[in-house]
Amino acid sequence: MSLFNNWTQELEPLLIKYKGKKHPLDYKNLYQLVVMVVLSAQDSDANINKIAPALFEVYPNMQSLAVSNVDALLPHISKVRNFGTKASWLIEIAQTIKEDKNIPKTMTELIALKGIGRKSANVIMRESGAQAEGIIADLHVIWVAPRIGLISESKDGNKVEKQLMQVLSKEIWGEIGMAISFLGREICRPTNPKCDICPINHICEYYKSITG
């Protein structure tokens, strides 16, 4: 673990670089985001972006999804991983929410919906501008945060989030998870990370270990 205890200040270059940058899922509104977040579990954002336009032509809003059924939805998401399970989740979500205007923006209400865990809820809340109640801990954050020296290593996203919430000031919760995620996507790759262009290499434990 790093000796730095003022992580909020140390991570500022990262927040400046990525603050407000839209999530890689190419959604047009909150309804689309909810659907795409559910579909993207254990799948790639790129794959979900590819199938989304045709899906949303048939199902433009929560109302249209709510009056549909699993069998009708399946052909439109058949190229998505675990599409059968996700189809039933989406129909249940739509029948619970009924209309786009009813989409919740709090952690408690979001994780009560089928197929939405804390990570997905944090993404939805961040993108909708809701008050953060946690920190996004996706696959990128899970490998990048320990590498920097922010937290100890864990493959469990909820444990990673909990650790991050303990060491980071609440004022940056809404942006820091996505900022670390973008760092992982663009610079801090699992292999051959581009350490020389990293905005926070001066505080990174991994960078110190390879530069001596």
Rank of each mutant, 00 (worst) to 15 (best):
K159A: 14
K119A: 02
K159E: 10
A87P: 01
E153C: 06
M125R: 07
R118W: 03
L113P: 04
A121L: 05
K170M: 11
F182H: 10
I91C: 09
G134C: 10
H202S: 15
K114F: 11
R118T: 01
K98S: 14
M178C: 05
M125K: 02
L139V: 15
P146H: 12
I97E: 01
K162E: 06
K170A: 14
G184H: 07
T108A: 14
L183T: 08
I142L: 03
I136N: 00
I151T: 09
I172C: 05
P193F: 07
I151H: 04
P190R: 14
A130T: 01
E127C: 06
R189C: 10
I176P: 04
S120P: 00
E171N: 11
I91V: 14
A145N: 04
C198S: 06
I111N: 06
P146Y: 15
I180N: 01
S120F: 02
A132G: 07
P199G: 13
W143Q: 11
I200P: 01
K155W: 06
L150D: 00
I93H: 03
N201H: 13
N158D: 11
N201P: 05
N201D: 08
E127T: 06
P199C: 06
N201A: 14
I172R: 02
D156L: 10
K162F: 11
N201F: 09
N102I: 09
C198K: 07
E153N: 12
E171D: 13
K159H: 10
K119V: 00
H202P: 09
I187D: 08
I148N: 03
A94F: 10
A137H: 00
S169T: 15
L168V: 07
Q163F: 11
W173S: 02
K105N: 14
N102A: 13
I103A: 06
L164W: 01
L168E: 02
S128H: 05
I124G: 00
E171W: 07
G177V: 00
A121D: 00
S154Y: 12
S128T: 13
K159N: 10
R189H: 11
V160M: 09
L168A: 07
K98P: 02
N192L: 15
E109L: 14
W89G: 06
I135C: 01
C198W: 07
L110T: 04
G177C: 01
